[in-house]
Amino acid sequence: MYIKIKNNHIELIKSANPYLIFATIFAFVIGLYYSLFQSPPDYIQGDSMRIMYIHVPSAWFALMTYSILAGSCVLWFITRNPLFNVVARSIAQVGMIFTLMSLITGSIWGKPTWGVWWVWDARLTSMLILFFLYIAYIFLWQAISNKELASKISAALAIIGFINIPIIKFSVDWWNTLHQPASISKLSAPSIDVSMLIPLFIMTAACFLFLVTVSLIRFRLVLIENKVLRTSN
């Protein structure tokens, strides 16, 4: 089954690319100014809390990207429209990078705050499992040469792995963990001061722009990869 995407849609994505790159860089520059210069240090953690401004958006988008990945795998499984498969493969690697970044920056924050780089509590362990799920998804697809079969197996893995997402989200509420519970939730006022929320939200917007920019580049890459694979066979 061939993917039905109009050429002018691809052209539209292509022409948006430079603007998206510019917007991402712009948002990151503003975000850096706010998070390193403008925002005050925390009353206990001091300046080490500035790591939060990159750690928290990374973790948010690690979870969000996986939800989209699992969602498009479900849609692909049911409808077998190859477009959903392409979407899943476009965003998987960006999600993996964000997961890795939240693990690394969290670890660097943990050393001065907790006194250790790593602990095996529920939140950290489930986040590490998410990283392995991303890797497994990406490598399974590459390792199996029959691409129809590869899509089936990797999609099944992504869907089963989705059970990890609510576990990550609620691990800090369900079990005693060393990781603190969420500071920002819908049900209550955030326990972060406004002067610290502003840089956090700018950095979140910048990370979102990065996610969109790279995902669209990868979308074109995956489409063309599919075409090359098809013509070379």
Binding site: S39, P40, P41, D42, Y43, I44, Q45, M49, M52, T113, W114, G115, V116, V119, L178, Q180, P181, A182, S183, S191, I192, D193, S195, M196
Partner: peptide, 17 residues
């Protein structure tokens, strides 16, 4: 034999406190 500081979910600048 090991002590870990546990941080809470509050982030505030010193002046606000």
């Amino acid at each position: 034999n090991k002590v870990l500081a546990k941080h809470d979910e509050n982030y505030m600048p010193p002046e606000v406190i």
